[in-house]
């Protein structure tokens, strides 16, 4: 028995040591807080005094009595449904095109750069473009072209806030997913492509659908999970652009909702309940992706 264990250990020792640092940090800063949040969601904790156990009352309030939660949920789903798939497809498409050009790294850097820039810095630029006064870039342009007579209040009008934030988050979504796609595309073995061409594949599109995509299932899964968790977690850019809380709760996502409860209203317990709901939602969509992109190797 001992020999089996020690054999196991020595086989995986080096590998374990490699991922141990990351794993430790992951457990401490990601896994443990999830359990803490679940625990806190059953209490009434206001950050300044110790929490009191209240059972399911937070969840009851959340699911049956909170109309802003419904708005937040709707906003988040709209976000996720637009910026998730669109961002995902855009990342893939861009990766596919760049893969066929020369100077791949230069283009890759150009597209990857927005995602590593701080949201706050990006919001400054976008706020300048979509400034609500007469001299904002977009307003000025539309004005000069004769489309409008009064400046559009971009970051105050509930109907314009959402589309702009979707636009910005798509722009910022060329992140690690994009790089992973690029890497995956470069790993598609040329032998299979040749075999495909012999077998009758006529154009690039067919090659894409029948050969490239199936080969890239693991990368696609990774990109999908990234896109989903990114789409559900939109917060920084929404706050920087529309303020907290946004006018008419137009950009109020689930994260904004839980932030509001945690730090403005001092109800950490309730916020943890919202966080758990968010977690379940993300997990659910993630599982669906895993089913779709399951690869058998």
């Amino acid at each position: 028995m001992n020999r089996k264990v020690s054999a196991l250990v020595s086989k995986y020792k080096v590998g374990t040591l490699f991922f141990l640092p990351f794993f430790t940090l992951f457990v401490i800063f990601v896994v443990l807080p999830i359990f803490t949040a679940i625990g806190t969601s059953f209490t009434d904790y206001d950050l300044l005094n110790p929490g009191k156990f209240v059972g399911l009352s937070n969840y009851r309030l959340l699911l049956f009595d909170d109309d802003i939660f419904v708005t937040a949920l709707k906003n988040t789903l709209v976000f996720a449904l637009f910026s998730g798939p669109i961002g995902y497809l855009a990342s893939f498409f861009m990766a596919w095109i760049i893969n066929q050009l020369r100077f791949k790294s230069v283009f890759a850097l150009a597209f990857y750069a927005p995602s590593i820039t701080s949201s706050v810095a990006m919001s400054v630029v976008w706020l300048y473009i979509f400034s609500s006064d007469r001299y904002g870039f977009a307003n000025n342009l539309l004005y000069n072209m004769g489309f409008i007579n009064q400046p559009i209040l971009w970051n105050q009008d509930a109907t314009t806030i959402m589309p702009i934030i979707i636009l910005i988050s798509i722009w910022m979504s060329m992140g690690t997913g994009f790089l992973v796609f690029l890497a995956g595309l470069q790993n598609v073995s040329p032998d299979i492509c040749e075999a495909g061409q012999i077998d009758g594949i006529r154009n690039r599109f067919q090659e894409l659908v029948y050969i490239t995509l199936p080969q890239m299932k693991p990368q696609l899964l990774f990109g999908a999970i990234n896109a989903i968790s990114g789409a559900f977690g939109v917060f920084d850019i929404a706050v920087a652009f529309a303020g907290m809380p946004s006018p008419g709760y137009a950009a109020h996502t689930l994260v904004a909702h839980l932030y509001d409860y945690a730090f403005v209203r001092f109800e950490m317990g309730y916020a943890s309940a919202v966080a758990c709901v968010l977690f379940l939602l993300t997990f659910f969509f993630g599982r669906i992706c895993m089913k779709v992109f399951a690869s058998n190797d």
Binding site: G136, N139, M145
Partner: peptide
């Protein structure tokens, strides 16, 4: 026109 104006219009 928009593209051209972008070059000239500084807000």
């Amino acid at each position: 026109a928009a593209a051209l104006l972008i070059l000239h219009t500084i807000a």
